[in-house]
Design a protein around this nucleic acid. Structure first.
Lengths: 212, 212
DNA sequence: GGATGTGAAGTCGTTCACAGCT
DNA sequence: AGCTGTGAACGACTTCACATCC
């Protein structure tokens, strides 16, 4: 198949297929058709096949897809087959919630360091994941520590007013991926990636749908 | 303008315009052009005008939009000009994070009750919002309490295995809006609305972009 | 003059329908 | 016979370009 630009929506769906396939594998199911998977994820069967076709041919005509193989392939595509090391910036209200909420992370995403402008005030807080506390450093050690701990993703959980300057620090430290929880528009240079998690937008969306 | 179906994306952008306009209003800016607003939200100026055009004519040709008027109009469209009363179901790890994270909510979204299968174990936990604790009820009182407290939105923060049955209870209690934090596919009847907040999907998306 | 509101064009994503394998 | 893989049709969203109005 010749190259095409891959829609964002396709990537999101792959993530959902991934979760469904994990469930199926646990149940011991060996083979799945695009129709079955589509049904489970509430999408169109052709959509499933097209999504997969962007990346190769993973199925067998007349049969379907081997659950385990497909799962492995999708994880490889998504990059979720590797360990991702993350830093949390801003250990306030939201930040410490994220540290405490161990299910926030699937196995392969780990917070390995945290930063704040006032680390002493928060030194007692820990992640419960694996029972291991997460060290909280002063924000001015961000470059040094991210290097040392091979951090690839930063979680911004500061007040919105600080979000852009924290993003700048992450860019300087060559942390290429940012998950932004602060309700502020932040911009980064080419080659860096920001994904926003704005509860407000989702709630407003819900409010709109409820109001008609 | 004749009726057209309104894209979801338009609604999400309105929410962003809303936040930008609030900032502008605080700064005392009176008038804004579609180009300025677009610039601030990183979208196309025609997009801004088209988004607004779905709902009416809010601008003045040759001038632009009055910040305050536009903001009020957008809030009215979104339904974010009213108070929304919410219930949290599942006061475990994630749930108590949501209770503790007061910035999670803008002024007009309030958690007014929480539910769990084991309320005594969590009775001590409170929301810090306005310093008022949030009462935790046993899940079997959900119908009664949502009625009494006029709850319109439910936040599902249970383990994924319980998400669908909790959704069923909310439907039965005529809570029409659901924000689902549990990584599980849930379905509801016509007339009800579910919005998912899946951190995993967003992280996988980030992982994909970083892996190319 | 200058910015809005909007039909038309363009781009992107989804669904259909069927050829091609197993 | 059955299900995948995919070109083509369709539909949805975005951007352009300009007529319209202040």
């Amino acid at each position: 198949m010749k190259y095409q630009k891959i829609p964002e929506a396709t990537i999101r769906r792959l993530s959902r297929y991934s979760r469904c396939l994990e469930e199926m594998e646990e149940k011991g199911e060996k083979v799945v058709s695009s129709a079955q998977l589509a049904n489970k994820c509430i999408v169109n069967a052709a959509q499933v096949r097209k999504d997969l076709a962007y990346f190769g041919e993973f199925g067998i005509r007349g049969v379907g897809y081997y659950v385990r193989d497909l799962l492995n392939n999708i994880k490889k595509i998504l990059g979720s087959n590797k360990e991702w090391r993350m830093a949390l910036i801003g250990v306030g209200n939201l930040g410490s919630s994220l540290l405490a909420y161990k299910d926030f992370l699937k196995q392969n995403y780990t917070i390995v360091a945290a930063f704040d402008i006032d680390p002493p005030k928060v030194i007692g807080r820990v992640s419960e994941k694996l029972g291991k506390p997460v060290e909280v450093f002063h924000i001015n050690r961000i470059k040094e520590v991210t290097k040392e701990r091979k951090i690839e993703i930063g979680l911004i959980a500061t007040p919105p007013s600080e979000a852009q300057s924290v993003a700048n620090l992450l860019v300087e430290a060559e942390v290429r991926g940012i998950l932004n929880f602060a309700p502020a528009q932040i911009t980064v240079p080419e080659g860096f990636v920001v994904k926003d998690v704005f509860f407000t937008i989702i709630l407003d969306n819900l409010a709109y749908l409820l109001s008609n």
